Amino acid sequence: MSAPKESVWEYPRPPAVEPVAEHVRVEYAGRVVADTRSAFRVLETSHPPVYYLPPDVVPAGLLRPSARRTLCEWKGQAAYWDLVAGGRISREAAWSYPRPLPGYEAIAGFVAFHPSRVDRCLVDGETVVAQPGGFYGGWITSRVTGPFKGAAGTAGW
């Protein structure tokens, strides 16, 4: 029996953080760059979930710090990472919150990957579809329904 569908419009604001035991995998340049059953999902109104993976599941040397920083009103300042593997570089393919704001301490240092900037992300064997647009990094699976924020014309949602 499949899991019930989740509408992203029923996700809370401010966002919720929940641990998941799903098998989460990220692939890039012909290799597995992250693989875990110990991730967190961040659930925010109008967005597909973002998966945050423990930093120790990413092999050393694959993530190179980027100068980019952004600010989330809920989670705080995000630091970005370039992914370097197999002679390829994916700029700002990942981000983390080194010192998140109160309520988001569980994801401190955990790494989120932007599905459109890697070759493939999977949740329990299902290939993820990237959230529309280039800014947000939500992971769309058959488990979630939209519409999703991120596409042209949705900035004011």
Score class of each variant (00 low, 15 high):
Pro115Trp: 02
Trp157Glu: 05
Val32Lys: 10
His23Pro: 09
Leu43Val: 00
Val111Phe: 00
Tyr51His: 15
Asp119Trp: 04
Leu83Ser: 06
Val20Leu: 14
Val123His: 08
Glu105Thr: 13
Ser142His: 11
Ala29Thr: 03
Thr154Arg: 08
Cys72Glu: 01
Ala108Arg: 12
Glu92Gln: 15
Leu71Pro: 04
Gly138Ala: 11
Gly76Cys: 05
Gly146Arg: 08
Pro49Cys: 04
Glu10Cys: 11
Gly30Lys: 09
Gly30Gln: 13
Tyr51Asp: 08
Asp119Ile: 03
Ile140Asp: 08
Val128His: 06
Ile89Gln: 12
Val58Thr: 07
Ala39Glu: 04
Trp157Leu: 08
Val42Asp: 00
Val57Cys: 12
Pro19Asn: 03
Gly86Asn: 02
Ala78Asp: 02
Asp124Leu: 06
Pro48Ala: 10
Tyr97Asp: 10
Leu43Ala: 00
Tyr52Lys: 14
Trp139Val: 13
His114Ile: 04
Arg68Phe: 13
Pro48Arg: 06
Gly86Leu: 03
Pro115Thr: 09
Tyr97Gly: 07
Phe113Ile: 02
Tyr28Pro: 04
Ala152Lys: 11
Trp81Lys: 12
Pro102Phe: 01
Tyr136Gly: 13
Arg64Ser: 13
Lys5Cys: 05
Pro14Trp: 00
Leu83His: 06
Glu44Gln: 02
Leu101Ser: 13
Ala85Gln: 05
Ser142Tyr: 02
Val123Gln: 10
Val33Thr: 04
His23Phe: 03
Ser46Glu: 14
Arg41Lys: 15
Ala60Ile: 01
Ile140Val: 13
Arg88Trp: 00
Thr141Phe: 01
Val32Gln: 04
Tyr97Ser: 02
Pro54Ala: 07
Thr154Ala: 07
Ser38Val: 05
His47Trp: 01
Gly146Gln: 09
Pro19Phe: 03
Ser116Lys: 15
Asp56Cys: 04
Ala78Glu: 05
Gly137Ala: 15
Ala85Val: 05
Val118Ala: 13
Gly103Glu: 00
Arg13Thr: 07
Ser116Pro: 06
Arg143Lys: 14
Gly86Trp: 01
Val111Tyr: 00
Val8Gly: 01
Asp56Trp: 03
Gly125Lys: 14
Pro98Met: 13
Thr141His: 03
Arg31Thr: 14
Pro15Asp: 01
Glu10Pro: 02
Pro147Trp: 00
Thr154Pro: 06
Glu92Cys: 09
Gly134Pro: 12
Tyr136Gln: 12
Ser7Leu: 13
Val33Asp: 12
Tyr51Pro: 10
Arg41Ala: 09
Pro49Leu: 00
Glu105Met: 05
Leu101Met: 10
Arg37Val: 05
Val26Pro: 10
Pro49Ala: 03
Val26Arg: 04
Gly109Gln: 05
Glu18His: 09
Ile140Asn: 09
Val33Lys: 12
Pro102Asp: 09
Arg68Asn: 11
Leu122Glu: 15
Val32Met: 08
Leu62Ala: 04
Val33Glu: 08
Thr70Leu: 07
Gln131His: 11
His23Ser: 12
Val24Ile: 12
Tyr11Ser: 08
Pro12Lys: 02
Ser7Thr: 09
Ile140Arg: 12
Val20Ser: 14
Trp74Glu: 06
Asp119Met: 08
Val111Gly: 11
Pro65Lys: 11
Leu62Cys: 09
Gly61Ser: 11
His114Phe: 15
Pro132Thr: 04
Lys149Asn: 01
Leu53Lys: 09
Pro48Thr: 07
Phe40Ser: 04
Lys149Thr: 06
Trp74Cys: 04
Leu101Pro: 08
Leu43Ile: 01
Phe148Lys: 12
